[in-house]
Design a protein around this nucleic acid. Structure first.
Lengths: 292, 292
DNA sequence: GTTCCGCATGAATCGATAG
DNA sequence: ACTATCGATTCATGCGGAA
């Protein structure tokens, strides 16, 4: 089946109305934070943020499938020495709107922005708020399983040690015959804390989040041929990841510069898709290298 | 100067009235969470929690010095598939009471409670909310600097995809006990994410948090001979740490069993303090070993 | 004295069963 | 229908006993 990627130029609140009801499996987005990115988005005052976001989240609630999930990446800024409360107020308001606030993941940023202040440390985490329409939603937990901790590592180390000294008599007894199978059993489910680094090699645009972030949630909440939406696509990270993972995607952005950039970079991808399919994530594709 | 440790048996809301205005440098506490600790504290329903806590936080606001800090360890649980909102409501209510919500630290628990559910991962973080009376408060950042060895930088490059999600390295605010070994190396300021394990081996009682947690905040927000308060002392972790670090401390608890246990364990400590002083954190003291 | 393995134990959550 | 209790699930940690 062909994978489609649509991008729309314009205000999310309006453009979302073009999307039919109950058609999106996953929304992953990082909207402009309050008073942030003044150059590109004009900056929403933190005390007007909820008011500004609610019409958009109303549309998102409409287009999301009942089994779908909405992941909102956001963090409050400091205003006059205090953490602003607009994120908490937004959660409360969205619940009144009909959203379920299912979970709050923490993105622990390994390389946070450097700096020093007299009464504050570097801020190295952001919220990843999970909202749902219904209590039952699709979640493919096996897709994001991770190797176990020290226990498995020590056993793996042992195994490789025995590998070094093993003789032929042991081969065929079934012991250590298939390490990869054995390793797969030593996997654990992750927690609600994600420990990723930020990508800092983006020169052309303000780097929103690293590819691993949308990738993780796309793995977790969608399967192939599902549809992913990013109403604030920015440089299009979510869309490119979705495309690579064979998910349909829709991106919206207000800024013509972003729209054109994403459009140009999508061209080679579209062409690529007419060629014989390969497993995603293995091969490098033309046109994408220039983006990273 | 002699270090004093006072403990009071009774309801925090009432016992706090015995403490004079503007006398406490740091409050570190972990109150019973909503619908938790039914056996020992009776369990506060999550929809009554704010109402229950506000009279206590009012007293805390009164006894805290203008330059002091209040650290509140708390986390909401799941109610009918959603995260409860009582913590957010508490923050909003405390701001109306006059508190400044200065910062939110994240405690990333290395060993979270196990389990598997169809639509949820294990919860492995808790909030450490920082409140202040004034925008200017005492903060001794140098006291909590962490070693930034070369290994940190090299590790970042080598990380596999899975390691990027699940990482046991001491990135962020992880701190070893013998920092003195690293003095020669480059030191860096920590971030607002703390990466610690819970102490889960206590047989006599449920230990709220690991010693490193109050230790870190006592280092950061107080100096020697300052006064630390824990209005829900439980097994007294905060008090013992404060005592060892040569800070005065006051603990309150409703439960006679805890009160007596802490009282008995303080006895050897008090005796110890009459002997020649040594640098805290180096020597093991009698009486404390039996506690752990 | 080390190192290694086995084991109990958590600020959990869901779904089924029982009153 | 609505609430209360219970079992199953699951993994990092540190202790104690053994090699």
């Amino acid at each position: 089946m062909e994978i489609k990627t649509d991008i729309l130029l314009g205000d999310s609140k309006e453009k979302l109305k073009l999307i039919p009801d109950d058609t999106i499996d996953l929304i992953v987005t990082s909207p402009p934070y309050a008073d942030q990115r003044l150059g590109t988005y004009g900056g929403i005052p933190h005390d007007k943020y909820v008011e500004w976001f609610l019409p958009i989240s109303k549309q998102l609630l409409r287009v999301l499938k009942p089994t779908g999930t909405f992941i909102l990446n956001i963090k409050e800024k400091v205003v006059e020495g205090e953490r602003s409360t607009y994120v908490m107020e937004l959660i409360l308001a969205m619940r009144k709107q009909g959203w379920l606030w299912t979970e709050e993941f923490i993105w622990h940023k390994k390389n946070s922005y450097p700096g020093k202040w007299p009464n504050r440390f570097r801020d190295s985490w952001e919220r990843l708020l999970q909202f749902n329409k219904e209590r039952k939603f699709h979640m493919y937990q096996e897709a994001v399983m991770v190797p176990m901790g020290d226990w498995a590592k020590t056993r793996l180390k042992k195994l490789s040690d025995t590998d070094k000294i093993r003789d032929n008599s042991k081969v065929g007894s079934g012991f250590g015959k298939n390490i990869s199978n054995w390793v797969e059993r030593e996997m654990a489910y992750p927690t609600n804390v994600l420990h990723l680094a930020t990508e800092c090699n983006n020169k052309n645009h303000s780097a929103a989040f690293p590819e691993e972030l949308p990738e993780w949630f796309i793995k977790l909440f969608t399967k192939e041929n599902d549809t992913v939406l990013d109403p604030f696509m920015g440089s299009g990270t979510t869309l490119f990841v979705a495309n690579r993972m064979r998910r349909n995607s829709i991106g919206i952005d207000n800024v013509a510069e972003y729209y054109n950039m994403v459009k140009n970079q999508l061209q080679p991808v579209e062409l690529y898709l007419l060629e014989p399919k390969e497993k995603y994530g293995k091969t490098k594709r033309p046109g994408r290298n220039s983006v990273r």
